[in-house]
């Protein structure tokens, strides 16, 4: 079931800014990563989901409701964490939490207390005097105090220290286990890598790639790092790899008899059989990093062809 849906949404702010013919769908219970450099249009897309902006073309729905006409109804089951922290500064943290509870008509504060403990939020002081990280935590607690079914997170971990970033990633994973639907925008590869099932890359207002992370992993070449015991076997291995088109030699270092080989997952057992005859000192997989993959896209022109399509 589709929870968040953008269909051919266009919003042109002029000077090439905005989003153009953006479509994507977030299914129930999945974590959707929305990745792109600063100014690519991530926040613009989220504005439309929140009903802050009206699309010039296309339609945005949340749980089947038009997000522009039904913004306030949608908010009942949606938690939004803005990218920029701009809290009302004349309040104390506790007053702000109370205000948000009243606005959301929440009577029971057990979930809120749980979140405050989890993120180690001290809300006693004036918001104006809080550090950026503490404001961020306050925003997180107030965004999720009503235990929403849909979470919309705009660069959620910026401003948090590494420990809190990890804790936030744990929180997202936990929410996913509880069946929540999550849209996460980010330009940080690690948090997208760690949490998302589906990923879209946006650049200059256009979605240039959408894929399922697991499928991508299955379709991408694996890279292995090998060290051979002696030079004779090393040269033989190199020859063997170079003569077989199934495998690619990525790099070699003759001084210390090292090399890197890549192959598709379907050819893995063949590779292992071949190298089993060689005396190896080490054999390890170079972990796949989305980062390298994304970087290709960031440099690629808008609408560029994908290497695996």
């Amino acid at each position: 079931m589709t929870i968040i849906s953008l269909q051919h949404v266009t919003k042109d702010y002029g000077h090439g800014r905005g989003i153009f013919d953006v479509s994507f769908h977030v299914k129930k219970g999945t974590v959707y990563g929305f990745l792109g450099p600063n100014g690519a249009g991530k926040t613009t897309a989220i504005r439309h989901i929140m009903g802050f902006s009206k699309p010039q073309q296309g339609i945005v729905t949340v749980s089947g409701l038009n997000s522009w006409n039904n913004a306030s109804t949608i908010q009942e089951t949606l938690g939004y964490l803005p990218g920029e922290v701009a809290l009302p500064e004349h309040l104390t943290g506790e007053q702000f939490i109370q205000m948000m509870m009243d606005l959301r008509k929440i009577k029971d504060d057990t979930h809120c207390k749980k979140l405050m403990d989890f993120f180690e939020l001290d809300a006693s002081g004036k918001v104006k005097r809080m550090s950026l990280g503490m404001k961020r935590k306050l925003a997180i607690v107030t965004a999720f105090m009503h235990d929403p079914d849909i979470l919309v997170l705009d660069e959620p971990t910026s401003g948090l220290d590494p420990i809190m970033q990890q804790r936030f990633i744990d929180f997202i994973k936990d929410e996913k286990r509880r069946g929540k639907t999550i849209l996460l925008s980010s330009h940080i590869f690690t948090e997208v890598d760690a949490t998302c099932d589906e990923i879209s890359i946006i650049k200059e207002g256009h979605i240039i790639s959408s894929f399922n992370k697991q499928e991508l992993l299955n379709m991408t070449e694996k890279v292995f790092h090998l060290t051979v015991e002696n030079t004779k076997d090393y040269t033989q291995l190199i020859q063997m790899i170079e003569s077989d088109i199934t495998f690619q030699l990525i790099s070699k270092n003759e001084q210390i008899n090292e090399l890197q080989i890549s192959c598709y997952p379907s050819d893995l057992s063949k590779l292992i059989k071949r190298i089993a005859d060689f005396p190896l000192l080490s054999f390890s997989e170079v972990p796949f990093s989305l980062e390298k993959h994304f970087m290709e896209f960031y440099d690629r022109r808008v609408g560029g062809e994908l290497p695996w399509q």
């Binding site: 929140m50 802050f52 913004a71 306030s72 938690g79 803005p82 809290l87 009302p88 948000m100 965004a143």
Partner: peptide, 18 residues
């Protein structure tokens, strides 16, 4: 001022109509 600063987002992220 609240739209400019962005703090209006907190009001509108609750079920409050414009």
């Amino acid at each position: 001022a609240q739209v400019d600063r962005g703090s209006m987002a907190y009001l509108l992220s609750t079920p409050t109509k414009r």
